[in-house]
Every structure is written in C-alpha cells, then in structure tokens.
Design a protein around this nucleic acid. Structure first.
Length: 446
RNA sequence: CGGGGUAUAGCGCAGUCUGGUAGCGCGGAAGUUUUGGGUACUUCAGGUCGCAGGUUCGAAUCCUGCUGCCCCGACCA
C-alpha cells in the first residue's frame, strides 16, 4: 500500500454507516463498523476494509520498526502447521478446543496456528548448533486463529487476529534475561509511539508457560480484566529512540517494575497496600495489548534444539516469546481515543493525516482552492483524503469527525471570500481561519 | 461451555399474541429545492420474512428440528 498516494473520497471505498449496527456493544466496535473500517464475516472474523487496513498496517509498521531497532529479525511463518510438530512439543493435546484442527485431502492433521513457538523452534533447531550464533531474536507478523468460545468486542477479541510474535534464543539464562529486557524496552516504545500508555504488569504465564512474564496493559474502563497499580507508573519516562539495545537495560526494567502493577489474576492486596500509598492506588480495568515471557527450556528441551557451548557440551537453548496483538491494538486505540462524534486518531496511526473538505463542489473558487491544496499536500508527501463528493456540508463534517483524521481543512465559499480556509484539529475541536499558504506550512512541516 | 435473547430491504425497526401473501425510518436512484454542522418535498428501485420439515384452503405469524448472530458468566493476545 502506498500511503502517500492521495485519495479522492469519490474514488475511495469508505462505506460509512449512519446508524449503529445492533451487534456492536463497545465503542471501538461500533465506531469501526460505522467508520467503514471492518466488516464482520463470521463470529470473531473480520474483513478489513480500506480505512481499517491503513490503520492496521500502520500499527504493524510501528511494531516492525521498534522490533528491528531492538535487534530482532523479521521472517514469516505459515498460518497452517502440522499437528505432529505440536505433538513433539507436547502441546497438541494440551491446547484444547481453542485450537482449530483441520485435515487436508490426504487426511493429514493440520492446525491453524494460535502461536508459533513450536514452529520457530523447529526452524531454529534445523540451522543453529553453536553458542557463537547466539543470541538471536526472530519475529513475524502473521494471522493467528484461536477458536474462542465467545468472541466479542469486535477486533479486540476476535478469533482470527493479527499478531506480532517474537522469539528469543540464548545460550544461558543471564543472556536470556538481556533478550527479555530488550523486548521489554521495545514494547515501552511501541505503545508510546502510538500515543498509548501501556503499563507492564506482573501476570500469569498462561498456557504458554514460563517463569517470568509481564503483560502490557492499557487502562480502560472497557478492558477485559481488572488491574491494580501505583499511579506514578503512568508517568514514567519512555526510553528514547537512541536507547542502546546492546547496553545493560536493567535500570530501565527496574524503574518500570518496582512500582506495584498487577492484573487481578496475580494481585496481592496486602502487598499492594504495603507498597502503595492509599492516594496512589489505582484499581480499574485494562486491555492487554502485549505480553513478554521468559520460558527457558520449555520448547528446546522436548524438541531437542541443542546448542554446543564453549565447552563442547550440548544444551537446550533458553527461550522467550513476546507477543503484540496488532489487530487488537486498533480497537484499543479507539477505546483510548474517541468522543461523541467518533474516532480521534493519534497522528502516528491515523489512516490519513488530513481530510480536505470541499464544501461546495462545482463552485469554481472552492474547486480551485481545493485542487491547489490537494496538489500541494501531495507534493509535500502528506497523507490526505480529499472529500470531493457532492454532498451537504453537514454530512461532510459528520463523516470527517467520525473517521477521526487528525486535521480537517475546510474549504467553502464563505471563508474563501476573505481568502481563508478553516483548519480544524480533531482532537481539540479548535478551528482556525487561515490563509491556504499558512495551512500548508503548518501541515506539511510536521 | 452454562444461562438469556434474537433472526423481516444495505442499516435500525414494526408486523407474530389474534394466520389472509409485508410496512416505517435511514440509506440508494431520478428530480425540484437547499448550501458552513446530517435541508425539505416528489417519484422510483430493493425482501423466496435465517434454513428444513409439518399443520392449514391459506403461514413472516401456529408446531417440530436445525443454523447463524448477540448479551451475561466461565475462559482467553
């Protein structure tokens, strides 16, 4: 997808719903349906329409950039996996009905992958034998399927979902902890870049297993689990882009994990009260958007992925896995950024930066002013959606507010009579009457 | 997986109790009008009433079975 390609609304595919579909209960689901981002094809299974896809891919791209920055290497594993692979790790029977099991024409047993620890271990085992090749962190961004008993909340808890999962390979535990720390720091940056405050919380390790784990959680009333934390954890500094991932990151980890923060599953009320002054105690709900695990030899041992050490002795590698719910994040972002009128996208993930509204299509002056602005924005490489439809102003305003582009440039005969266009900032609602050149200077710069 | 709902036009709904071959609003098309926060009016198009059986002269409506979807709970990125 070429994001910079400017788009005319009259040629785009943006099926806006004026009324709320009744099946949508929470706000992000309602808005995604209304804004023409997704269409449900089955319970927990969605088609991503053009506007939704743009956001999904932007989220994925931020994840990708931060993973790369932290030294992880991208690959791509298939969605379908052989059941035998999972038998080898002992998880085929353990996983339960959540796993979608299917057979091919030869009656070979396959499954639609709910995660990829087994497969990445198989790949790694095939090629890596020496401690000298470690450490490594491999990741991919791929669709997963978990046959939830009860999918709900739109893309926040779908059955099919897009996930980034990374896997670390280390020779010893000390090194594995460093990999864990790298991913931890990368996660802090990923969510911060999307304008989200994600808090790492101690959590249960779940069916994947392991002995060290944090969930990254966004506080939201509509979240699926209860959380407890110290208020100050909301204001900790996010590691900068210049963070050296080859350095010892433990100071950052310590800073982010010393204040109390836990999900209800592992919550210890006595400890919470001991460690947190009453006025700093937060008890609310949260949306899990990422999780990091260290699980040691859980897969390398049963699957016999052995690494020769300096002493010539083979040992199972020390593993960790690190997930980010990419499609879920799109829902979470809306939960965190909306108002009565619709979505308010953070600029980093907005489907377009600007909505350019021609209030009187067919009027020579507004047409020309819009065409000039459109061309200039295109030239400046700014992502712009030009509403060139022959529709009433009210409808255009409502639609732009609904889809939540960060800026609206409103061009109508009234303002143009004085040589002005209006610049509206979606987040604040602020409207300014400016020369077209001023608007350009403002929006093309940032 | 337990409990509760629901299924009628693209979307939101009425009609079902009391059987007589389907209607309203929004949206769509054509037109007049209007033009800075979803303008008003006129006309038009669009539905084998979730599916399969059954009862009946006749079924959206009554009976049986099935399926999809939603909500609460348990469970989960």
């Amino acid at each position: 997808m070429d994001y910079k390609q400017p788009m005319r609304l009259s040629r785009y595919f943006l099926p806006i719903l004026r009324e709320t579909p009744k099946e949508a209960e929470i706000v992000s689901h309602r808005l995604m349906l209304r804004a023409g981002m997704i269409r449900q094809e089955a319970a927990g299974i969605y088609a991503w329409l053009p506007l939704g896809l743009r956001v999904l891919q932007k989220v994925a791209q931020i994840v990708r950039e931060e993973m790369d920055r932290a030294g992880a290497i991208e690959l791509l594993m298939p969605t379908l996996q052989l059941a035998d692979l999972w038998r080898e790790s002992g998880r085929y029977e353990a996983y339960g009905p959540e796993m979608l099991r299917i057979k091919d024409r030869h009656q070979r047993e396959l499954l639609y992958g709910p995660t990829n620890e087994d497969m990445i271990t198989e790949i790694f085992r095939a090629y890596v034998r020496s401690y000298r090749d470690l450490p490594k962190i491999l990741y991919h961004i791929q669709w997963k399927f978990r046959d939830e008993q009860r999918p709900r909340f739109g893309v926040m808890r779908g059955r099919e979902f897009l996930m980034k999962d990374a896997y670390s390979f280390d020779f010893d535990e000390a090194s594995a902890r460093l990999s864990y720390n790298r991913m931890f720091v990368a996660y802090l940056r990923i969510f911060a870049r999307m304008g989200l405050r994600a808090i790492p919380m101690r959590a249960e390790t779940g069916p994947i297993g392991g002995d060290l784990s944090h969930e990254f959680i966004i506080l939201a009333e509509t979240g699926e689990s209860g959380v407890f934390c110290h208020a100050d954890v909301l204001n900790l500094p996010v590691p900068p882009e210049t963070t050296d991932y080859d350095s010892d990151l433990s100071a950052i980890i310590k800073e982010w994990t010393s204040l109390y923060a836990a999900t209800e599953d592992v919550h210890d009320e006595a400890r919470f009260e001991r460690e947190t002054p009453e006025e700093k105690r937060i008890h609310t709900r949260g949306i899990e958007v990422g999780q990091v695990f260290y699980f040691g030899e859980k897969y390398s041992k049963p699957m016999q992925s052995l690494i020769a050490g300096p002493d010539g002795v083979d040992r199972p590698f020390q593993g960790g896995s690190y997930g980010v719910g990419v499609s879920r994040l799109v829902g979470a972002l809306i939960e965190a950024n909306h108002d009565e009128q619709g979505i308010i996208w953070p600029e980093a993930v907005a489907p377009f930066k600007i909505g350019l509204a021609n209030l009187k299509v067919g009027d020579a002056a507004t047409d020309k002013a819009c065409a000039d602005l459109f061309a200039a924005l295109q030239k400046a490489g700014v992502e712009v959606l030009y509403d060139d439809t022959d529709e009433r102003p009210g409808g255009k305003f409502a639609r732009l507010d609904l889809i939540g582009l960060p800026y609206q440039i409103i061009v109508g005969p009234k303002g143009l009579a004085e040589g002005k266009v209006e610049l509206k900032t979606r987040a604040t609602g602020a409207r300014e009457s400016l020369d077209p050149a001023e608007v350009l200077a403002r929006l093309a710069a940032a």
